[in-house]
């Protein structure tokens, strides 16, 4: 099963390597990993997407918690939560095709953030499936470059993940 895990980790040199190294050394699957500092500059927040059976996920969570730099951890998949991913796509947009591409972006509530006479760069935010759907909807030949952030997640409700 797919799990999305949020990790608060000391913002120290090597902290990211400890997490990625753990996944590599123990043969756990890792689909995506994003990391950035939080409002507290001594802490980074990591969002990990992984999959495995119940026993593996339990081990992943325990092993992450065991890392001395990990302060707090939450398996977002345990409860209601929101996921968002950012994607930027560079597409061909030449003469007759420009209007059609603009319409497609509008349908997906995407923004065109860069324009040349032959291309658009489109920014799209949403759940992973929405980004997938956009890529399916656009003709493969027109896609020049895709960059995705990997999902970020946060739990629903008034309670926040903090110290």
């Amino acid at each position: 099963m797919r799990h999305i895990i949020s990790v608060l980790i000391e913002n120290e040199a090597g902290a990211l390597a400890r997490v990625s190294g753990l996944f590599a050394a123990r043969g756990y699957n890792i689909e995506s990993l994003t990391v950035a500092p939080t409002q507290d500059e001594t802490l980074s927040r990591m969002t990990l997407v992984t999959y495995g059976d119940e026993m593996i996920i339990e081990q992943i969570i325990k092993q992450l918690n065991k890392l001395v730099d990990v302060v707090k951890l939450l398996d977002l998949s345990d409860g209601p939560h929101i996921e968002r991913e950012l994607m930027m796509v560079k597409v061909k947009a030449e003469k007759g095709a420009r209007e059609e591409m603009k319409r497609m972006a509008d349908i997906f509530r995407a923004n065109i953030i860069d324009v040349t006479d032959s291309s658009y760069t489109i920014e799209l935010t949403g759940a992973g499936e929405k980004l997938d759907a956009f890529l399916t909807a656009v003709n493969d030949d027109l896609i020049m470059e895709v960059v995705r952030s990997g999902p970020l997640g946060i739990s629903r409700g008034a309670k926040g993940l903090g110290l």
């Binding site: 026993m55 339990e58 081990q59 325990k62 092993q63 918690n65 065991k66």
Partner: peptide, 11 residues
């Protein structure tokens, strides 16, 4: 003493 030891190999 190590939670990660528990149910690692045997449930």
């Amino acid at each position: 003493v190590d939670p990660a030891s528990i149910s690692k190999n045997v449930r």
